[in-house]
Nucleic acid binder design. Structure first.
Length: 1134
RNA sequence: GGGCGAUUAGCUCAGGUGGCUAGAGCGCAGCUCUGAUAAAGCUGAGGUCCCUGGUUCAAGUCCAGGAUCGCCCA
């Protein structure tokens, strides 16, 4: 009977792994791995919920590999690692999937088609769609050996989850961080819906529109002050116009401002006949106005057009930003090391024309140190208090160094102009934060005028420019959602559609309305000219009608109010790779704007906001809703009961009540699904919003910096803060903490040529195929070791084969070697344990201690790298150890396992057993299946039920002897290499034994001289002083070959030929043979060979030796020392 | 347009805080060993460290500018 289960040396990992998985399932090993640690410290992991309405792909395998390995590692480290799955069930992707499956056509509005089907039915289909692939996901997850609890999975569409999300929204509202605002979105007037960005991208078409050059007349006072600036006589009473260019004249009735850019050069031109003045960019006046009728009367930069009123620095934090009111300002960005108010010093530094290196010393605690990020001139600033030096360019604004970004606010006196269609109303010209050059093609030579017409209702840039410049008036939007001019429009437009149908195509266009508006402007003397302009314009890809950008009401979380707190919370997060922290994620936080959380869609968490004409109320739970209904509309009790089961649209939209005269209805929107998943630290655990749970570890791909990583942090931080509307201060009311401590941010998977994987390119890999061909562990190992985590990975199937050849198979071969001989020697795991110390002491050899030391060393290194999340390095270290084990230790100790009736070499078995068990354990988080297989076979009966229930190994300190042996082995391996190259140089094969090797005394070869002699086939090793070696060599050979050595060499040469013949004849290793030899009259050679006859026969397992002349049949000619002889082998039974 | 990352051998990738002759695996070529036998080892060739400037005694590494590729956001 075998002690160990026999191991195939041609393993089918797919099958082996599947059996391990079955073993885990049947014995509930995953459950036990948590129960076992019941009272242990917790290590919390959050699973980012995937949308399960598609099949999982290799990128999911990648993320899950890295999720799993940390959890397994921490479990083995003794932590209790609870990990529940999660499903993101809401959102647009699900809706689109259902639209497709319903065969909704593109010709008609999808909104209409959904309403035709019924929102109730539609949402039912959405709910079903998310369940469709859950089975597939669970199977793949199990097969790839990702341990996660599906039974306790959180689901974002479950009533319990939705209720907790509501409680968050209510809490945010209580903290004054929820508000209703506006957002400019792509809008389809024909179907009355928002169009997603992805759909917009599909619908761009080239169209020709009538563009207009429009004259905006300055008010009297602005005309006067500008004339002063341009040194134009005050007696000249001609009007001044600003010239703006637009491709959408239909937005002109909604004009609210003009934007200019600080650094564009503007000219004021005078018409030679009419004497009127026009301001336009210097680069464009000739092309637009022409030199025939116009001449330049002066020029100024954009920032000089506006009068400087005040000059101050402010910190660009949301609090100050609000107070400072960015009205009409030009700002420059500085970095402050220490906040203060001595600006003259810095201006003088900046204006110093000397370009040589300067050393400015100041006391930074007293005087502010501002550094222009854009400074070209090298400047070193020394803080006299701390003696710390700062170079400009070295410091970047980052909250982590206490260095803040400052803006220079130059408040400007505004220029005002008369509204186009109502001379009594005035608008302003703005410049500064978001100005013309950012909105428009910067100071173009080919189009525009350098002055941009701002209609905040019809462009995101316009809207931001308007808001950023702090103009607080209500936004004019003269067009209704259906595309008809409303009561805000001038009389001649009211009630007219902005569209007309093209007579040929039947499609909508702006041609008619643009003509009407231009005609009116011309009559008012405000139109310079029109021009046909061809440009790319977004269209509704379903109906082919033009889209407009349109201001829609939207609900926001005021995350910009907690920007500093977000940045502060980020400080305590460990990011892997580290650059994400201050880079991609940090930058994103620094530029944080309010989060628009409402979506005009159907399938999502309904916003729990009910509004009346006077106010709105946020409902935080079903109980609150019940209270409202009980008190104010008991007739809907039954409805409410249904809603508690399924709180989705459309049912919930019917809930309404009248409270002391206020009629409350629900807002129709649903919630951004990122808010759902970001709520998970509260909603998945059912805690109170402020007591959200914190993960020790999360892991997703890099696209989640703007997705889940952000939504988690934004919600958690907002819940920890409160905004005071009166003082405009944000106050931290809770411990400010991030909902996660460590984030591993993975790169994307690309195909082997670096192309994105996509269905259309046909380069998508199916994980199942990979598992079947290689097994899950080799795939996991490849993903971990191919690149350092965080880099994009070029996924190459050949890379998996390489992992197989480089690591998995050598490990497996070593394992199979052990089992093969242990079984022959009837050694059991128990016997090894019992033999223990004493046997070891008797039989231990230096090389055993060496490999154990290597093991210890490796363990120590990987423990360190694991803590640093350097998993690729861990894999590398394990690979190197297995290489040493297989190619150094096993290779030179094989004979110890060929027990020929002697006493067993327990030390050899013990050493190899120890190493294999240790490798299995250290690989267990990466390759959980194969390591389990090895563990199960090698463990003794009272071992752990599973390797994943066992404990992670700590490294012992190396003893002096161990350190010494590590060093000696390095020397020995080096000498062996030198010896081999010396042999090659002297053209003497290793088969030819040599008498001596001389080794420099710089090497210590006390313990491994035998190893060197064995590997190099040399009889004697002599250590001599380095000075006695020729040519500074570190070792030298005695290349004299005595007749005795010659005979031995020939014998080995002969053996080599016989072995090759054995192999090519297809004999088994253990087959016994008969040799027939024809020496072909080479008498001397024959004599030499025959001297070693016994040795040779023994080596090649020959039982018979026949010397014949003229062997004909099947004989094989071989060359030996330049002479030819003939051989014939045959198998014999014994 | 903005942000982030990457660019090192034929291929895939390592190379904190500047420091000997820039490394590994694969591939290629040559050689070797074989009682782990469709396994294994050794040696070699192969580099303008993307380019240009700068700092330094010293730059793959730091700084500035540029090129190309990728990702994210407009």
């Amino acid at each position: 009977m075998n002690s160990f289960k026999p191991v195939s040396n041609r393993p089918n990992f797919n099958q082996i792994e599947s059996e391990i998985i079955k073993f885990w399932r049947e014995n509930k090993i995953f459950e036990k791995s948590i129960e076992l640690r019941e009272s242990a410290e917790e290590f919390t992991f959050f699973e980012g919920p995937p949308t399960a309405n598609g099949k999982p792909g290799v990128h999911h395998v990648l993320a899950r590999t890295f999720k799993d390995l940390v959890c397994r590692y921490q479990t083995m480290k003794g932590k209790k690692v609870v990990r529940n799955a999660g499903w993101d069930e809401h959102g647009l992707p699900v809706e689109i999937e259902v639209e497709k499956s319903q065969g909704f056509t593109n010709e008609r509005s999808k909104k209409e088609q959904i309403e035709e089907l019924g929102i109730e039915r539609f949402n039912e289909l959405c709910a079903e769609s998310t369940k469709k692939y859950i089975d597939e996901w669970e199977k793949l997850t199990e097969r790839m050996a990702y341990w996660v609890n599906f039974e306790n999975a959180y689901k974002t569409s479950s009533p319990q989850y939705i209720e907790k999300v509501w409680s968050i929204l209510k809490s945010l509202n209580n903290k004054n961080l929820l508000y209703k605002g506006n957002k400019v979105v792509p809008w389809a007037c024909d179907s009355g819906t928002v169009v997603s960005q992805a759909e917009v991208a599909q619908g761009y078409k080239d169209v020709i529109d009538e563009s207009a050059y429009v004259k905006f007349k300055l008010t009297e006072s602005s005309t006067k002050s500008l004339k002063e600036k341009f040194s134009i006589s005050a007696e000249d009473e001609s009007p001044i116009y600003m010239l703006a260019w637009t491709t959408t004249p239909w937005t002109l009735p909604s004009n609210m401002a003009l934007a200019i850019a600080p650094d564009i050069e503007y000219v004021i031109c005078k018409n030679k006949e009419s004497n009127e003045y026009i301001i336009i960019s210097q680069k464009r006046w000739k092309a637009v106005l022409g030199e025939i009728d116009w001449e330049v009367a002066g020029s100024l930069r954009g920032k000089e057009l506006l009068t400087r009123k005040e000059n101050k620095w402010i910190q660009n934090s949301p609090k100050n930003a609000e107070k400072a009111c960015f009205k009409n300002c030009i700002d420059q960005t500085l970095i402050s090391v220490n906040f203060g108010n001595n600006f003259e010093f810095w201006d003088s530094v900046k204006n110093d024309k000397d370009n040589s290196d300067k050393f400015y010393s100041i006391e930074m605690s007293d005087i502010p140190a501002f550094m222009f990020e854009q400074w070209r001139k090298p400047v070193i600033i020394k803080d006299l208090n701390t003696n710390k030096e700062f170079k400009n360019g070295e410091i970047k604004a980052s909250s982590s160094h206490g260095i803040k970004r400052l803006n220079r606010q130059i408040e400007l006196e505004s220029i005002t102009y008369s509204c186009l269609f109502s001379e009594n109303l005035k608008n302003e010209i703005v410049s500064g934060k978001k100005s013309a050059d950012e909105i428009f093609v910067e100071d173009s030579e080919t189009s525009g005028t350098g002055i941009v017409h701002i209609a905040p209702a019809f462009g995101q840039d316009d809207f931001e420019c308007y808001q950023a410049n702090g103009i607080e008036d209500n936004i004019i939007c003269a067009v209704s959602p259906s595309g008809v001019f409303n009561e805000q429009a001038p009389d001649f437009l009211k009630g007219q559609s902005i569209f007309n149908d093209n007579k040929k195509t039947g499609l909508q266009e702006f041609v008619r309305i643009n003509k009407i508006i231009c005609k009116e402007l011309a009559e008012r003397g405000l139109l310079l000219k029109t021009e046909k302009y061809e440009h790319s314009y977004p269209h509704n890809w379903r109906t082919n009608n033009p889209l407009i950008y349109y201001l829609r009401p939207s609900w926001y979380v005021a995350t910009s109010k907690v920007r500093d707190e977000l940045i502060a919370a980020n400080k305590n997060i460990n990011w892997y790779p580290e650059h994400i922290k201050e880079g991609r994620f940090g930058q994103w936080l620094e530029n944080n704007i309010d989060w628009s959380i409402s979506r005009e869609r159907f399938w999502g968490t309904p916003l729990p906001i009910w509004f009346s004409e006077r106010r709105f109320e946020v409902i935080g739970s079903f109980a609150e809703l019940e209270e409202k209904i009980n008190n104010f509309n008991p007739s809907q009790k039954d409805l409410l009961a249904k809603i508690k089961e399924n709180p989705h649209k459309p049912l919930i939209d019917q809930l309404e009540w009248e409270e002391y005269g206020d009629k409350f209805k629900r807002v129709p929107e649903v919630l951004d699904c990122w808010f759902d998943s970001g709520s998970m630290p509260v909603a998945a655990f059912g805690t109170e919003p402020e007591n959200f749970k914190t993960a020790d570890y999360i892991c997703e791909a890099i696209d989640q910096t703007r997705g889940w990583f952000y939504s988690l942090l934004a919600i958690a931080v907002s819940l920890s803060c409160k905004y005071d509307e009166r003082t405009h201060e944000t106050e931290i009311i809770n411990n400010l903490r991030s909902p996660y401590k460590n984030v591993l941010c993975l790169g994307h998977i690309l195909d082997k040529d670096g192309q994105k994987m996509s269905k259309s390119k046909g380069n998508v890999l199916n994980p199942w195929d990979l598992f079947e061909k290689f097994g899950a562990d080799p795939v996991r190992w490849y993903m971990i070791s191919a690149v350092s985590a965080g880099q994009p990975i070029k996924f190459d199937i050949d890379g998996i084969s390489e992992v197989m050849r480089r690591f998995i198979l050598p490990l497996w071969n070593t394992y199979s070697f052990f089992v093969l001989y242990a079984n022959l020697d009837k050694i059991t795991a128990l016997a090894l344990e019992e033999a223990g110390e004493e046997q070891l002491k008797k039989q231990v050899q230096p090389i055993d201690i060496w490999i154990t030391a290597r093991l210890n060393q490796t363990q120590k290194q990987i423990n360190e790298e694991f803590e640093k999340y350097e998993f690729a390095k861990v894999a590398q270290l394990i690979e190197k150890f297995v290489d040493d084990l297989s190619n150094v230790w096993v290779r030179s100790n094989r004979s110890r396992f060929w027990n020929v009736g002697n006493s067993l070499d327990y030390s050899a078995y013990l050493t190899l057993h120890t190493c294999l068990m240790a490798v299995a354990k250290m690989s267990a988080p990466f390759a959980p299946l194969i390591s389990e297989e090895i563990y199960q076979n090698l463990k003794s009966k009272d071992g752990f039920e599973s390797i994943h229930l066992s404990n992670w190994a700590e490294a012992d300190e190396l003893t002096e002897l161990e350190n010494n042996l590590l060093e000696q082995m390095e020397s020995a391996l080096e000498i062996i290499n030198i010896g081999r190259s010396l042999r090659q140089e002297a053209k003497i094969k290793i088969r030819q034994p040599l008498a001596q090797i001389f080794v420099s005394d710089e090497f210590n070869v006390q313990y491994f001289a035998d190893l060197i002699l064995q590997e190099l086939n040399i009889k004697e090793l002599l250590v001599i002083p380095a000075s006695e070696l020729e040519n500074n060599l570190k070792a030298q050979l005695n290349t004299e070959i005595s007749p005795e050595l010659k005979a031995e060499g020939l014998a080995r040469e002969f053996i080599h030929s016989v072995q090759n013949l054995r192999k090519s004849s297809g004999f088994e290793v253990s087959d016994r043979i008969e040799i027939k030899i024809d020496f072909m009259n080479n008498i001397e050679l024959a004599e030499l060979i025959k001297q070693k006859k016994e040795y040779i026969m023994n080596e090649v397992l020959a039982l018979a030796w026949l010397e014949e002349v003229n062997i004909n049949t099947e004989s094989k000619k071989i060359k030996l020392d330049g002479f030819e002889i003939s051989l014939q082998l045959s198998k014999i039974n014994y």
